[in-house]
Design a protein around this nucleic acid. Structure first.
Lengths: 201, 201, 201, 201
DNA sequence: TATGAATGAGTGTTCATTCAT
DNA sequence: AATGAATGAACACTCATTCAT
């Protein structure tokens, strides 16, 4: 890759970074191309050199990062571990990965939210597809654990959603507010519940 | 409240209902005032008599419903129950209440999401305030449980977020997709974890 | 039709007039909506109240007038006259009608030109269709004249095109420059050529 | 002219050829400089080396070809023939010349049309000037014919316009549609009308 | 008081032109 | 001299808001 090419990629990256920041802060519709241009100190036309439409700019931002995240997380599913150990590992990896993408996290969850809960004219079906693949693998882990008698008998979808819900809420809280926690804590609460042994019902 | 006043409130309510439906279906930006006017069979100007801006109309819709939901849920916190029983009851009540607001739920969570995770120009600080009050009470319950030795020793904020995350994910999944579950299931998983007794660590 | 309705029609007419002038002077593409707005002293949005797109505004201008012209000219074809007399009458009527539309004439011929000679993305197929209908009737007159032995034996299409070409050139010259001529002159020159009797040289 | 100069002229010609094709196919406004650059396999900047603006490129194309056409047609006026014979010859030459420029014809007539009938910001005053010179010579021929008693007494401008109108309409119809005709036919129809002998009716 | 026509700033996008390489 | 990436004014069109009726 020559100097020219490298510079081009550099410019593209700069635009992506600025756009990511603005889309994160204000959302897709409230961010105008003019604004992205001004913030990135390029002309509008220059942005259109790299991205044919606003929609595609947005999708590229989201899809690129989403793929990166996905590719860092899913290998966990291929590790040769029992469901319990695998989920423990997943928690640790997810925390590490997601914390390293903290500036993108808000946008990521917004897209997932919109994609999953039906905002019309979904902006990134591919991100959704990626997430569904992840969910599928996650469900499989729970299914295996149930089968092996490690996890209580319940729908694996239920477990997957409960896991994702709890985990995502904690991650977001820790990134955007000041909640500190370790992978262990999440694992302990999720696996063992919150009751002190012997207490409760 | 005289007839005049009653009629006024009636008009306002009609507008709010139509706007809620449209905002829910298409989102805030994609819904135009002209559309709300046409659907509600009022003139645009009339809507502006009741709501000074589109933003305020949106906020009022969300705040109204959010208050209703809040008012149906928080009494649980005043019931004379131990933390464990109270949370059990909270789960049952939340499920019942939120399912009865299913057409509003998407909008509600969207606003909460935007408010909590910092989309600039937040559309409803008051909704956020309400939610924070709820969170505060929830934390108090967890704090009390910890103090009483029922719950394991951990930050009450951590418990509150974990609870909300798991619960909200399940509720959304059950409303927008086909996940069926009972209050008991949520409670059992949250309180007791997913491991079969004696298994795991 | 109430006052409101009348005023609306008045506004619409004002816009149409201004747009006609600008389209005539500068052509379709070189005339911007902003310009039409400024010239007509309405806001851009107001123009869009009356015409959904620029294209439709243009078409409405052209089609409306073209229909008027057509409706004033074609009745001649239904008069009970022999081909020679009918064409004489046609010349007189066309001159009278087209001179009364002089501000529209340039646009009219431009559209016909574009439509007939293939500018892509033709702006008014309906105007073309109208003109083809006229041409068809004109050809029929020539065909009849040929059959009756009044006109020399030649393709009626050839006669129709020759007639239209000569006539239109003269009309345009008389409107845009200073050529004065009477219907008789056109007739004499054109017929002198197509009548069987009296070959030159 | 050295090699350098020759190469330069070669480049220029290549650009003109490509631009002519594109302008003919899609019109002036719908053809972009980028497109011309890509089609001609030069860079945009290179085109701007030869032509200072898009408008001038267009004008040069049209003027070049118009000059060619003009130079092939006007010699007829210098031939030592009587008006009748000269016009006969003119018809034959014009048909031969214009048919050999058929891909340029649409553009040519469009420019003439715009120039003569006053579209503002005329794209080629020089083409117009050329055409007026041609018209002038044509008028002179008619004037001479009138003076010599060959043609009926009428304004020579009137004759010139009638001639051009009829001729151009027929040529365009023959190029863009399927009208076949010989120079003789045009001459016979046109002269049949303007010769002194043989009045109609 | 209720109306809805009018407004015009703002949108995403294009493309003639420039200029550093 | 040739390049083509960068520019930004201009475009058609939208829509929250105003205000004369």
């Amino acid at each position: 890759m020559g100097r020219k090419e490298r510079e081009l990629q550099q410019r593209k990256k700069e635009i992506l970074d600025v756009a990511l920041r603005l889309f994160s802060q204000k959302g897709y519709r409230a961010t105008s191309m003019q604004e992205i241009a001004k913030s990135s100190e390029f002309a509008v036309g220059t942005i259109y050199r790299f991205f044919p439409t606003k929609k595609r700019l947005y999708e590229e931002i989201v899809l690129d990062k989403a793929k990166e995240i996905y590719n860092k997380i899913v290998p966990v599913f291929n590790e040769d571990l029992d469901p319990f150990a695998l989920l423990n590992r997943l928690i640790a990896v997810k925390i590490a990965v997601l914390k390293s993408y903290s500036s993108f996290i808000r946008l990521y969850y917004t897209v997932l939210w919109e994609a999953r809960f039906g905002v019309k004219e979904t902006l990134s079906e591919q991100v959704l597809a990626l997430y569904e693949k992840y969910l599928c693998k996650l469900e499989a882990v729970f299914a295996k654990g149930i089968e092996e008698g490690i996890f209580r008998r319940r729908s694996s979808r239920f477990y997957a959603m409960a896991f994702e819900g709890m985990f995502n809420a904690l991650i977001q809280e820790s990134i955007h507010h000041d909640l500190e926690f370790s992978p262990n804590e999440v694992a302990e609460v999720f696996f063992g519940g919150i009751l002190v042994q012997g207490m409760g019902r």
